[in-house]
Design a protein around this nucleic acid. Structure first.
Lengths: 364, 364
DNA sequence: CTGAAAGCGCTTACAG
DNA sequence: CTGAAAGCGCTTACAG
């Protein structure tokens, strides 16, 4: 019935036109119309069956289901997306997928999305405002259902565009400027304050801080907590910038050891920088915890593996990811209008690297 | 690059040239028609300008560009997708995104995709055939451009469906049954053979193998290499199943120590199981490398961090990911019909855990 | 080079 | 409950 002119879009797809006698490739180039014809109903009814509309007669449901099976028909989601003006996918925009902190977050988000029948579009921005803009614009053009965003540029116009399109945005780890977005962040200030106070309590005075990139909210918050604790103790802060990454942290730590050789303790702003710092310390012949005490933010799976195991401040990543997804789904379900902001606390896990009396977890 | 209209390398990521005018005329509900009217041209011309068609008069280009900026118009990709019968996205289906091996691979793939203006749809199967089926069907329905697949079920019908739709599939890490798919795998057999021979060369005789799930191709290949090396040395293999995951590996190692207490060396089948084994060894009071020598497959970033640093067989993940993307793009560019299979070798990196004389990398 | 027109394959008011 | 029809917003032969 629906004659397809040669060279139509079907042809472009490289689909073989049905050859008489030859076994037709199942489900290719079929539309609801074909199923409808086969089942002796209208395309609308096929659509209703596929969408689980409860109003369709049982007999029709059966006939349509049978026809779909016989034909091997599979719905073209592209058409559905256009018609509904949404692709059922959630954008997840992180600054560095290789950072275990975000890997864990992505994993938890994937779980939650899959359970609800949505897909995840993974975007990695490398902390570049330009990549963030490109990805968010794409997500807007594609009419994503919602976006979980670790903002590289919290003030980006693209964030506004998404919100304008009624696409909910949940800021993760750092907040964004637009007040309409939800957010899920952790109390980095409290974390470094706790870390610093823990080291102060152990008698350290010359405590340095290895922080992230200036201007990044998370970095600033963590720096602030350290500075407060030091100031309250009447001590001078000593800081180095490790850019939240391994290599810069390695270099910054080496430089710090050169510059402030008398430092006895280090607060490290995230797990990636801890790796860099550990390497630099080893290279410099400083042994943990005696030559240098160390407390790190984040609790990656390898923190217990190193010798001595790392004393850390752990954030509840999984719960945070779940919270972000929950906030998103509340919006999708129109169950909420006003923005919500959730703050999560860190947990101090004392292990060996801070020099506190505590048996390593590994010795039986 | 035949199928993509002229444009900058990364410029076509859906980055429609809407300028962030401060007065934000929300580009909602605007269509090309509106832009066309404003610019005094046809919608077709607007489309051509947006797609970088070189045939449009310079003056029209200017007028259209201006109209787009004034209106704050942004293209609806949903319509474009339907019309072109493809969403410009690549599905990437892995068994465990939290495994650093796959994280690295995903990262490299994202890089390559972004450079070419494509997006990545991340799917995590947890080694479940059902999740693989659900994701691949979705990818087919959404007319993904192509799929990189770490198969949980290499014989799944959904793989055939994708190929039937002319959606190229590149099997990664393990091959799939359908002969039309490309593949990028590493020589796991050679890797465990090398590992075992290295330990044999160091004088070990009672060498055990901690392997992955029975039936998974990668696991079987790695097991085979170990068994061959043992057999050739006239020794009896001793094996444990750690399911490629941390916890099962921990349990399996504990059981192994119980059962075969006299084992002096361990070949571990992947990086996740190495973590489990390390924990079990520590718990059992066995020190590396004296009480137990260890060689692991994979070279995650933490392998150098543990004490002693791990002797490993590293696979060139980044190159493998690049190869997979290259194979995919060759298909998209219609530059190849016949399937291609690429095999990558491992590199032995002798560090401390095998007991071989070698200075740790960290001591200055 | 440009425009008018067809159509991608669904979904969904609307009418019966 | 069901079908005919409109239409989502693009792209692209086709004709001029």
């Amino acid at each position: 019935m629906p004659e397809r002119p040669a060279g139509s879009a079907t042809g472009d797809l490289g689909l073989d036109p049905a050859q008489p006698g030859a076994e037709a490739p199942r489900g290719l180039g079929l539309s609801m119309r074909d199923v409808a014809t086969r089942a002796g109903v209208s395309a609308a009814t096929v659509s209703r069956v596929l969408n689980g509309s409860s109003t369709v007669q049982a007999e029709y449901v059966e006939r349509v289901t049978a026809a779909i099976a016989e034909l091997g028909y599979r719905r073209n989601r592209l058409a559905r997306n256009l018609r509904r003006q949404t692709a059922e996918m959630i954008g997840i925009v992180v600054s560095d997928i290789e950072n275990p902190h975000f890997t864990q977050m992505v994993r938890a988000a994937e779980d939650a999305a899959y359970r609800r029948g949505y897909r995840l579009l993974l975007c990695n921005t490398d902390e570049e405002a330009e990549k963030q803009a490109a990805y968010l614009e794409m997500l807007a053009g594609e009419r994503a259902l919602g976006v979980i965003l670790v903002p590289s540029n919290p003030a980006g116009d693209e964030i506004r565009w998404l919100l304008d399109l009624d696409i909910p945005v949940v800021a993760f780890d750092r907040s964004v400027e637009d007040p309409r977005a939800d957010s899920v962040v952790s109390d980095g200030e409290g974390a470094t304050r706790t870390a610093t106070e823990h080291l102060l309590g152990a008698g350290h005075r010359r405590i340095a801080f290895l922080g992230g990139r200036t201007g990044v909210e998370t970095a600033e918050r963590r720096r602030a907590g350290y500075e407060q604790a030091m100031r309250e103790a009447g001590l001078a802060p000593r800081e180095a910038d490790g850019d939240f990454r391994i290599e810069p942290a390695f270099a910054a730590t080496q430089e710090l050891l050169q510059r402030d050789g008398d430092v006895t303790a280090l607060v490290v702003g995230n797990n990636l920088m801890a790796i860099g710092a550990l390497r630099a310390l080893a290279r410099g012949g400083r042994r943990l915890p005696d030559d240098m005490a160390l407390v790190a933010i984040d609790d990656p799976f390898w923190a217990e593996l190193v010798e001595p195991p790392l004393t850390v401040l752990a954030q509840p990543v999984r719960e945070m990811a779940d919270a972000a997804m929950r906030l998103l789904f509340e919006r999708l379900g129109q169950r909420r209008e006003e923005p919500r902001h959730e703050l999560f606390g860190f947990e101090l896990k004392v292990r060996g690297s801070c020099g506190a009396a505590h048996p390593g977890p590994a010795r039986g």
